[in-house]
Design a protein around this nucleic acid. Structure first.
Lengths: 144, 144
DNA sequence: CTGCACCTTCCCATCGTGGTAAGGTCAACA
DNA sequence: TGTTGACCTTACCACGATGGGAAGGTGCAG
């Protein structure tokens, strides 16, 4: 199998497969005499694993950790669970952040007439609710 | 006000302020004879506007649109609302995506013993639930 | 006048992916 | 057999938004 087939079989692009090799996420593929990368079913399996991990939002680094655990027959499921739950916590953190943004904006928009008139609570918020004048933690020497 | 003070007053970094000028998000700042950028209260106001828009998750591009609407006294609130709601939709889309990831992982983790044993539904999912073998849309010429 | 906090521009790194260019390889078909 | 063109290779640049740092100039307190 050439890289194009391997990419298609794993749901990745050829670019990504080469990139994963370049950063050491996967071992360098075997080569034909002409220099073409050659992939076997094990390689495809690994690439699919990566694809799936990425689709669950794992970073390349975390994906690498999972790959190592996967390859380690003596792993503890506790280690895998820890990586997963850590990621879940990270996802929840991001979700909460986006949730806050969406709710705030939705609230502002619901109070906006949405007509030809220029008055708008959204712009009012943006122009007023900016960061507070920064409590001085490490005072500057000049311009005080 | 020099750039450091402007940055502190707006909650941005000096780097970001220069960057916003470089990409044309804000007009080039006035300069002293020595070449130092000088900021007035209007500039600070604008920078805070940007800071707030960014904190609500608007991209630089969308932030620019909002800035233009803000400066346009004849704007329609409908235009502002449209930009805001479009962004809300984008946020909701991302939230749903992350929600799906988190729920899937949480579910898998809840079925993981989390002990010293190697068996783990999380790794099982990753190694099995990969992308399906890609329905052929544009068949390759070779290797058929 | 010295020291140093601040300013300037310029370049590089991040992260993961896509694009493109310049060139080599391989199989199908006339 | 030769042509075609889909495929492969490496190498470079781009994105978005930010941080880091180098090399050098400015300005004020002491």
């Amino acid at each position: 199998m050439n890289i194009g087939d391997a990419a298609a079989a794993s749901g990745l692009s050829a670019k990504m497969v080469r990139y994963y090799e370049a950063i050491g996420l996967v071992a360098p593929a075997l080569r034909t005499e002409a220099g073409y990368r050659v992939y076997g079913s094990d390689d495809i399996h690994t690439l699919r694993f990566i694809k799936r991990a990425r689709s669950l939002g794992f970073s390349m680094e975390k994906t690498g950790e999972l790959l190592q655990l996967w390859r380690d027959r003596d792993r503890s499921s506790a280690d895998v669970k820890a990586v997963a739950l850590e990621h879940v916590a990270e996802l929840e953190r991001k979700i909460a952040e986006l949730r806050g943004m969406a709710d705030t904006l939705q609230h502002l928009a619901s109070h906006c007439h949405g007509d030809h008139r220029p008055g708008c609570p959204i712009l009012r918020d943006l122009s007023a609710n900016a960061a507070p004048p920064a409590p001085v933690t490490a005072p500057r020497r000049r311009r005080t």
